[in-house]
Amino acid sequence: MLLKVENLDKHFGGAVPLHILRDINLELAEREFLALVGPSGAGKTTLLNIISTLDAPTGGRVLIKDVDVHHLGQHALNRFRNRHLGFVFQDDLLLPHLTAMENVALPARISRRPTRQASRRAEELLEQVGLADRLKHRPGELSGGQRQRVNLARALVNEPALLLADEPTARLDQETSRGIVQLLGELNEQLGVTILMVTHERELTDRAGRVVEFLDGRIISDRRTKPVGSASNRKALQPANM
């Protein structure tokens, strides 16, 4: 198993103590594409943040590649996140003063890959997401959909074991969101990237091979719609039309 979530609990303190995640258990195999759906406030983002190690659980544990990530030291955790996890959030988290290419290359440079190699990889990825002609543009000069694709390219630059996407299509028009989801589907099918995606929009879950439904901090259903790794032809990705 690539990802194992065991008896995960999350409380939030504060004026009114909240019990957001209740005893979550979830397993994700390599090359799976899982869509997490559920109403607003169900705790999807909270779960994703904990899996992405940006937040800590109150109880239970998260194993990624058999590593108990929340018990790593600060430094090891940084490395782990940098090497094995890619994330796309609903807000685009790009550095505004770097070009698209520099943004994409950043995780590679943080992992101390040579500048040129990092840039070449970034360029390839941007081409794959259909932004070959926007390499030198800054986030402010890109549309929302284009920014989201830059985010996606950045999430992939270090060839992560697991791609976490939290509503990657939020705030985008339907056309554009479809494009993004299609891209994710292709990544999964053709490159075998394991994906855990949160979305509100049920119609976008068609692409995923597995749909997990969330309600009030609990998993209420878990269905598989396609077999894992249904497509094994690892062709190069065609740029999506967006």
Partner: peptide
């Protein structure tokens, strides 16, 4: 702050 947080999120260490 946000940029620094992004950097941390994508793996930059505190020392960096």
């Amino acid at each position: 702050q946000k940029e620094l947080a992004i950097l941390r999120a994508v793996g930059a260490s505190r020392a960096s």
